[in-house]
């Protein structure tokens, strides 16, 4: 993993956030008190409140996901083509789930009462739970299956054992 990738993505994240902050925020874009029920919020029309920032927020989300995966990649041994391609595949699926969710939300915001359901939830919301939540579980699978190859191969375990054996006696008191 190239160490310059996370700071580069962090810079992009900061720039996207600055662009979001510079847009003019629609009134009550973060919801307002429910008309009849105390302690409950409503949000009104989705297109009105989020339409102007949707593209930038999508960009922010995709860069954020790339940043997360770049951090995962920091921990993986360099020079392994298999890990590169599998991580890339996981990232693409993660990004796709997020992007499809945003795309579905555009339809949902425009015609909310015509929305279809996926299981017990509106499709856009189902993408959050079954897509953005569950798709990254691929990285758990990769960690568990390839632990001996990508994270801690036998050669590294042996080198660590050697480090422990050769540890100067005063090191622990340092």
């Amino acid at each position: 993993m190239k160490c310059w990738i996370p700071p580069l993505l962090l810079t992009m994240l900061g720039m996207t956030l600055a662009a979001i902050f510079l847009t003019s925020e629609p009134d009550k874009s973060h919801g307002f008190a429910h008309a009849q029920i105390a302690e409950m919020h409503q949000a009104g029309n989705g297109t009105d409140r989020l339409g102007s920032v949707l593209l930038l927020a999508w960009l922010f989300g995709t860069v954020m996901i790339a940043f997360f995966v770049s951090l995962l990649a920091l921990a993986i041994l360099p020079g392994n083509r298999q890990s590169f391609w599998l991580l890339l595949l996981g990232t693409l699926l993660y990004e796709t789930a997020f992007s499809l969710m945003v795309l579905e939300y555009r339809h949902f915001a425009a015609t909310p009462l015509e929305t279809t359901f996926w299981g017990p939830f509106p499709t856009a919301t189902a993408w959050v739970l079954f897509g953005v939540w569950l798709v990254p579980y691929i990285f758990i699978l990769l960690y568990t299956v390839f632990f001996d190859r990508w994270i801690l191969p036998a050669s590294h375990r042996n080198r660590f054992e050697e480090l422990l054996r050769n540890r100067p006696p005063d090191l622990l008191k340092k």
């Binding site: 409503q42 029309n45 969710m101 359901f117 017990p120």
Partner: peptide, 26 residues
């Protein structure tokens, strides 16, 4: 069940049952 909850919330305020709830995307 869960579908009934979603439909009820959706009918009152669709955004509350959308992917971002009332807080919004950002």
């Amino acid at each position: 069940g869960m579908t009934g909850m979603s439909e009820t919330i959706l009918a009152d305020d669709p955004e509350a049952m959308g992917p971002w709830g009332t807080l919004g995307m950002v």
